[in-house]
């Protein structure tokens, strides 16, 4: 019991600091992901030839390469071109762009699932294309994308762990430091795993509440039939 107390005393403060950074990384990455991903999806579905191509190139590259590689290119490679990011910024940008590419695909699928009939009906009552997208397509598409997006939120908590490799002191980074300091890797990593489980569970519960709030009777079913 004493050993446990000592262990906790040594590790808990660092782990809390690490968890806070992990949460920050998650939130920023998701936000950047939406800000980049949603316009990309719209460009892919409604844009002209060049917008569609650009959108496809972005999603293909960022989904076709590992997060780790993107991180290293951003943090170690770009300085060679004169673009130097401090480690946190590099982490935010890499995670954000990566998430954006995946989110773009979820949004694209959802927008296409809404169905062209909705667009026709919206135009038929005199809405402009933009009005139709804003008031008819997107409200439905975002609801359809919610399950996939919930997964992305929960998954992002885990993906942030990779930034420890550029010495960001997130949960994983702190774990590495602690394991090196006290020579007890298994205990440290098991504890860290536990903290991640807690974070993931909290995220899952939050997303479940969000999903319940936005549920519209039969929206998923109705659209799926088309």
């Amino acid at each position: 019991m004493d050993q446990l107390a000592i262990f906790l005393q040594r590790t808990v403060p660092d782990l809390i600091q690490g968890a806070i950074i992990t949460i920050r990384l998650t939130l920023v990455a998701l936000t950047v992901g939406v800000l980049v991903g949603l316009p990309t999806a719209l460009a892919r579905v409604y844009g002209g030839r060049w917008l569609r191509r650009l959108s496809m190139i972005y999603t293909e590259i960022w989904r076709g390469t590992p997060l780790l590689v993107q991180l290293f290119v951003a943090y170690y490679g770009l300085p060679e071109l004169g673009i130097t990011f401090p480690r946190m910024a590099a982490a935010f940008i890499t995670l954000g762009l990566n998430s954006g590419a995946y989110q773009a695909e979820y949004f694209r699928g959802a927008i296409q699932a809404v169905g062209s009939g909705q667009m026709s009906a919206a135009r038929a009552i005199g809405m402009s294309r933009w009005q139709a997208i804003r008031y008819i397509i997107l409200p439905q598409a975002l609801r359809l994308a919610l399950p996939a997006w919930s997964n992305e939120v929960v998954a992002m908590v885990k993906y942030t762990s990779v930034v420890f490799l550029i010495a960001v002191p997130d949960l994983m980074g702190k774990a590495k430091i602690l394991a090196g300091r006290y020579f007890n890797p298994i205990e440290v990593y098991l504890t860290v795993a536990l903290v991640y489980i807690v974070l993931v569970t909290i995220a899952t519960l939050i997303m479940r509440l969000v999903e319940r709030h936005f549920r519209t009777p039969g929206l998923e079913l109705e659209v799926a039939r088309h």
Binding site: G117, A121, A124, P139, R143, G218, V223
Partner: peptide
């Protein structure tokens, strides 16, 4: 123009949300 022409579709196309 479409404000002055009403259309009713075979598949209804009601706005689901």
């Amino acid at each position: 123009i479409r404000r002055h022409i009403g259309m009713v579709f075979q598949d209804f196309n009601l706005f689901n949300h």
